[in-house]
Write a protein that binds this DNA or RNA. Structure first.
Lengths: 130, 130
DNA sequence: AGCACGTTCACGTGGCGTGAGGGTCC
DNA sequence: AGGACCCTCACGCCACGTGAACGTGC
């Protein structure tokens, strides 16, 4: 079966280069090249062995799609990764701004409703318990 | 100086391939390749001569930057152009949403102020001039 | 008639993946 | 002691830019 250290590594959700390469469908040497170009940055053990996390693997699979399916070179991959990150953050900002918009409108409504009650019903205002 | 048809073309803001190539710092043949790959789509004269608009030139200069400065291949250029377009539209949506947000809050304020005036001052409401 | 246009083909270079060789760590 | 890791070097392939050849339109 699999070797003890491989099993151990996979149990941790962390993979050494041979396993990561197999899971990403790549040559181990290719992964080393990607690291020198700054496309992935796996951790290292004390013995200097690369350890690929799940996030690293996800990134590898994305790169795999860009290079083999779409035919990008590494320079293109770098730019695309950056742009996709920007785009993701832009969408997050959209989400946040929309939520903020709704909340602010609600708050304005609440504020005025409180004021309206004061004018409409000039009886003793219920003070909050002290 | 320049040949009559070149001058004519430039006056129109439209350039034949040799002029466009010079302005973009590229080989004319390169521009033809880009067209077959769908990266630029210049108009044609009845005689089938390519005519590059200012927008085409701007696009060419962007491609020039991506390929020579950043080292992308054409597949990468295609993806990057698409992503930059998406990003631009996302920013436009952000602008629009933010403006809408301010407007809506203003409208709520206006609405309540009108109501408050009715409660506060039960004299004839000053109607706006008709 | 000539010049710049059109298309197609061929060559050269460079990027990238793959493998081999040799050293090191469990 | 063996196996997988580390790194560096070398080969091969393919994409792309550039030029040449040849035909066509103004």
């Amino acid at each position: 079966m699999a070797k003890p250290d491989e099993l151990f590594a996979e149990d941790q959700g962390v993979f050494m280069i041979s396993v990561a390469a197999r899971l990403a469908g790549m040559h181990p040497q290719t992964l080393r090249i990607y690291e020198t170009k700054g496309l992935v940055s796996p951790k290292r053990t004390r013995g200097n062995t690369r350890l690929y996390s799940e996030a690293d693997l996800e990134r590898l699979r994305l790169i795999q799609r860009l290079t083999t399916e779409l035919g990008l070179n590494l320079a293109g991959v770098e730019v695309v990764l950056r742009l996709e990150d920007e785009l993701r953050r832009a969408h997050e900002r959209l989400e946040r701004l929309d939520r903020q918009r709704r909340e602010e409108i609600q708050n304005v409504h609440k504020q005025y409703r409180r004021d309206l009650v004061l004018y409409q019903a000039p009886r003793p205002v219920p003070t909050r318990q002290h």
